[in-house]
Amino acid sequence: MPSGDGGAVLPLVALACVREDLDGVAHAAVRQVYVSALEEVAGCAVALVQGPAAWLPAVLDRFDGVVLGGHESNVAPERYGAPPAPGPRAPERDALALNLLPSAITAGIPFLGICRGLQELNVAYGGTLRDIGGLPIGAAHREDLSLPRDGQYLPAHDVAVTPGGPLHEIVGQDTVRVNSLHGQAVDRLGSGLVLEAASADGVVEAVSVADASAFALAVQWHPEWYAASDPVSKPLFNAFGAAAAAHARRRG
Rank of each mutant, 00 (worst) to 15 (best):
H157P: 09
D23Y: 13
G151I: 05
H27P: 10
S36N: 15
V67K: 08
W225G: 07
E224I: 10
S103W: 03
S233Y: 04
D201N: 08
G113W: 03
Y80H: 12
L118G: 03
T106V: 11
P77T: 03
L22M: 14
G108T: 06
L68R: 06
G87K: 04
Q152M: 12
E92H: 13
Y125D: 04
A239Q: 09
A107P: 00
H222S: 07
P88F: 10
A197E: 03
L101K: 03
V178H: 04
E39F: 00
G43C: 05
S36L: 12
V204S: 10
M1S: 15
A8Q: 14
L236K: 07
C115D: 02
T106L: 09
A216H: 07
Q152G: 01
T106Q: 14
V232L: 11
S208P: 08
L145S: 12
E39P: 00
L56E: 09
A239M: 08
A54C: 11
F215C: 10
P57N: 08
D150T: 12
A26E: 15
A197W: 02
L193Q: 07
A28Y: 14
V59Y: 01
G7N: 09
P148Y: 04
L118W: 02
L167G: 01
P163W: 02
L154Q: 14
Y34C: 08
R79N: 06
R188Y: 06
S36A: 15
V9I: 14
Y125R: 13
G126V: 01
G183M: 10
R250K: 14
G69Q: 05
S213M: 11
H141C: 02
L60K: 02
N122L: 07
R130D: 02
A228S: 15
L189I: 13
A8T: 14
L101E: 00
W225K: 09
P148G: 07
D201C: 04
G81E: 01
D201W: 04
V33A: 14
L135M: 10
A210K: 14
L15V: 11
